[in-house]
Write a protein that binds this DNA or RNA. Sequence first.
RNA 1: GCCGGGAUGGCGGAACGGCAGACGCAGCGGUCUUAAAAACCGCGGCUCGCAAGAGCGUGCGGGUUCGAGCCCCGCUCCCGGCACCA
Length: 803
Amino acid sequence: MAHDDDPAVYEARWRARWARDGLDRIDLAHARDPYYNLMMFPYPSAEGLHVGNMYAFTGADIHGRFQRCQGHDVFEPIGFDAFGIHSENHAILVGRHPMELVRRNVTRFRTQLERLGAQFDWSKAVDTTDPRYYRWTQWLFLQLWKADLAYRATRRVKWCPNDLTVLADEQVLGDGTCERCGATVLERELEQWFLRITRFAERLLAGLDALDWSESTKLAQRNWIGRSEGAHIDFPIAGEEPLRVFTTRPDTLFGATFMVLAPDHPRTVRLADPAQRETVAAYVARAERRRVAGQHAESGGPAGVALGRTARHPLTGAELPLFAAEYVLSGYGTGAIMAVPAHDPRDHAFATAHGLAIVEVVRADQDVALAAHVGGGVLVNSGEFTGLGAPDPARERVVATLEARGLGSREVRYKLRDWGISRQRYWGPPIPVVHCPRCGAVPVPETELPVVLPYVEAFRPLGTGSSPLAAVPEFVNTRCPQCGEPARRETDVSDTFLDSSWYFLRYPSADRDDVAFDPQLTRRWLPVDTYIGGNEHAVLHLLYSRFIAMALHDLGWLDFEEPFTRFRAHGMIVSQGAKMSKSRGNVVNPDEYMDRYGTDSFRLYLMFMGPFDEGGDFRDRSINGPARFLAQLFRLLARVEDTEEPAALARARHLCVQKVSADTPQLKYNTAIAALMTYANSLRDHPGPVPAQGVRTLAQLLAPYAPHAAEELWHRLGGTGSVHRQPWPRHDPSLLVEEVVTVIVAVDGRRRDQLRVAPGLPADELERLALSLPRIAALLDGHPPRRVVVVPDRQVNLVLAVA
RNA sequence: GCCGGGAUGGCGGAACGGCAGACGCAGCGGUCUUAAAAACCGCGGCUCGCAAGAGCGUGCGGGUUCGAGCCCCGCUCCCGGCACCA
C-alpha cells in the first residue's frame, strides 16, 4: 500500500527529479571550489552489486555529500573496471563472450548504483573496456616506453597453470597459489613487457611520509617496497671473479665463516669443484623443482650442498667454504651471502647442521654456539674494529675500509620488482606494439590508436604462452609502422592494473576524445582530495597509481607527483563472522533489503553498524532500527508547528549539529547517526508541538546519510530548492552550556553521592558542598580528607586512604 | 616468525584519564486494538537486598595514578598483512 511516507514512493521520485535537474553534474571547467571525491571503481561482476560495494560507496558518498554541503563543488565520478581475468574466467565458465557479458553486467550495475542514491556524475562515467578509454591506456604505455620506463625482457615469471597466464608477483599468495583460482603457481621463461617501477622505489617510499593516508596502508607499501640499507662485498676466489654478496650487517664481516649461493645462482654449478659438480647439479635440480612448486626446505636445515671450493675473506684472508642452499634466494640481493652463524639464525641453523665454525663478533650475553645473537653490542674478534659499537658505528667504519680498498661499497636494496604487465589472455587492451623482423619492436603511432581488441569467438587461453589473439591472422598480420614491411602485432594484452592505474586522471576528461586528460581540467581537479577504498589494494593499485603519476609528472604531463592527497581504507563487511562467499552461502543480496526497507534505511544501517574503517557483521534484523528512525521523523511532521523553540530543545539541536558536523568529516558515521537519533528522540519526547526548525535541521544533517528522506522532509516542511544545496547548519557554542551539571562525589575513588549544581563553580566551592553532604559527612566521620581532587563540573574525589 | 588492528551486556557498538554500557537490535512487562501488526510507556551487566543501598564487573596477570576500558610492563586468543629479503 503505497503512501507518501513510503520510501518506495518518494525515493524513486527524488532520484528522477535530481537526474532531471542535473543536481549531481557540475561544471568542471568553471567550478570555483573543486573537491575531488574518489572511490574505487567496481569490477562489474555477474553477481551484481555486492553489499561490500554498497558499504564502500555509501561511506564515500556520505563524505562527498558532506563536502558539498560545506560549499565545495564536489566531483564524484564512478566507472567500471571491466577488463581482466575475473570477467574472462566467468565468460569461459558460462560459455558466453566477455564483450556480451560485460555489457550486460555494466547495465545491471548501473541500475543498482543509481538506486544507491549517490551523487555520481554519470556524465563522466568510464568503462575501461571501451576503446575510447583503452585507447589512452595504450597511449600511456607508449609514453612510458618513450621515456624508457617500459622494456621487454625474458624473465622467469609466475605462471598459473589453470588460468594459463602470467601473474604479477602481487597476484601470487604467500603459499605459492594463484590469488584468482588457488592453483599452485609455476614458473616459465617468457618475453614480457615490464614497467620500471623500481626506478621510483626511493620516491615511492619517501613520498609516503607526507601523505594523509591510513597508517596501515602506508606501512603495507613500505614493507612491499622493502628498502634495506647495507653494502655489497666482494670475496675473492682463486682463479675466478670474486663472489659478490649483499649484507645489511657489514659490521659482522669478521664473523663470516662460510658463504652460501642460491641454488639457481648463475655461478653455483660453475663454481663447484669438478669432483662435486654432479652432486651439486643434482641438488640444484631438486631445489629447482621444489622452488617452482612453491615449497621450500626448512630454513638453514641440512638442505644444501658444499661446492668443494673456498673464497677468501676480504680482510682476514681466511678460507671460507662455499655452499649452495635453498634458504638463499636468487631474487634478492646478489643471490649469494656471507654467512655469519653467530649473528643470524638461518646461518646458525645451517652451520650447526653442517658442523661449520661459529665465531662471535658482537659480544652476546648467551652462548652463540647454541643460538644466534641478532641484536647489537660491542665488536669482538674483529681486528682493527674490535671495541666499536655494532651495528653502528661499526657498519660505517667497515664499509669505509672496504670502499678504500675497492672490496665493497655501500648499497641500498629494495624488495620491489619491476611490474610485468604482459598477459597472454584475450580480455584486456592489446599492447600497442608491432614486431618487425627488420626494425624490432616498434610502437604503434599514437594517431593509429586504439589498437582495437577484435571480437574473437575463440577467446579461451591457448596455454602456449601466447594470447588467443596470436591465432587471429587478421589481427596479427600488419605492416611495420616504420619501414612498411610485413610485421606481426604484439598479441599480449596488458594487466588490468594498468587500466586502473590512471582512471582517476580520465574521469574529468571522460567525454574528450582528443586527449587522455585535459591539462586545464587536470590542474583544477587533481590530485584527488579524498580517496576511499579497500585496503586489499594497499600495495597493488595504490602503488601502481602513484608510480604512474610520478612517471607522468616527470614527463611533464602532471604538475603533481602524488595522485591521492588523502586515502582512507574502509572496513570489510562480513556475514556470520566470515567473509561473504557463495561457497559459504552467507552472501547478502542488497536488493532484497532495499526493496523491503528502502535505500536510505539500508544506507543508514550499513553506516550505523560500526566504525566505517572497521567494517562489521551484517545482521539483517538490526536494519529495523534505522527504518524505525526514519519513520519516526515522518511522524514528527504531524506535530510540527512554527513555534518558538524551547531552550532545552534548542540546546539538544545545537548539540546534534555539533556532533554530526564533527563526526562526519572524520568518517565516524556510526556516532553521527546515533546523535541524529538522540535528537530525534528528544523531539519525539517533547510534549507539545515540535518546532519546525528542529525537523528542518534534522533534514539537513541527515542529507548526506539518507539523501531521499532528507529531501522529502525538507519539502514537506515547505523548503525550496534542494536540501542538498542548503548551507550546512552551524551550532552556537553558547547554547551548549548546561544549566545544571551533575558532579560526582567520590571517597577514595568510589562514587558515594552526587551534587546537582550550576556549571562553573570554583573548586573550593565544590569541595565545600561535597563535604556538607550528609552521606559524605557520615563516611568521613569527622576526619578531614588527606587530599581533595576536584575536576570542575565533573567530580570531587575525597582521599582518605594513605597512599 | 615479523608488522598492524582488536577483545566492553544476549547482539552491533559508545565512552577529552573523571557516573562504563550512549545509540540501536533482540527480549520481557504494559497501553491501544475484537485480534494482530504498527505506535506509545516501562524494565533490563552480575550478586545480595522488600527497599535504601552494598559488593563485583571492559580477555588474563602485574604496575603507574586521588582516579584506568583508556597509560606502562608481561601474557592469551581473534582478525588482517608480510614472510628464508641476508
